[in-house]
């Protein structure tokens, strides 16, 4: 509790339940093993990190690529495999600037992802909006779920 007092000195307005929940997440954060949340997630460790979702018609591959222009991005699809590669460029500021923070990184990247089902490679669409890439890949007719009527 002493630790908590140090971190949250103005912490007396919330209900006990909220406090317990906060305590739990704080402990998770401290031990680096949050239950079912971001810290425990296994990632491929290859840039860019990818989220893959599906609906009945399509697979959606999303990646956060801030500052990458559409023409610096290369997406190719072969069979079930999708490759996203490109380069993130950050222009140099010259020598007369003084940096206070420099956290953004530039460099090349290449990421391959295997889709979990057959797809129609010819109709893959990609869009890059506000630095988020969305590739929508139509599923092959054979993999789409079929409605079966009961007679």
């Amino acid at each position: 509790m002493i630790l908590r007092r140090i971190h949250y000195p103005t912490f007396n307005l919330r209900s006990t339940f909220e406090e317990l929940e906060r305590m739990r997440s704080e402990m998770d954060r401290l031990f680096g093993q949050a239950t079912g949340s971001i810290l425990s997630r296994p990632a491929a460790g290859v840039f860019p990190l990818i989220n893959l979702t599906e609906d009945k018609e399509k697979f959606y591959v999303r990646a956060e690529l801030p500052g990458v222009k559409a023409d610096e991005l290369n997406i190719s699809a072969t069979g079930k495999n999708l490759t996203i590669s490109g380069e993130r460029k950050i222009a140099s500021r010259g020598n007369d600037v003084r940096y206070h923070r420099r956290e953004r990184e530039a460099g090349k990247f290449s990421r391959a992802i295997a889709l979990p089902g057959d797809v129609e490679v010819d109709n893959v669409e990609a869009s890059l909006v506000n630095g988020v890439l969305t590739v929508s890949v139509p599923k092959a007719e054979a993999v789409k779920p079929k409605q079966i009527n009961v007679k």
């Binding site: 460790g45 840039f47 460099g107 090349k108």
Partner: peptide, 21 residues
Amino acid sequence: MTDTETKELQAKEKTQVATPA
């Protein structure tokens, strides 16, 4: 003048705000 570095970008997990108090 552009950066000439062509190192590979490393995947980084996003950092959550440390004190969401």
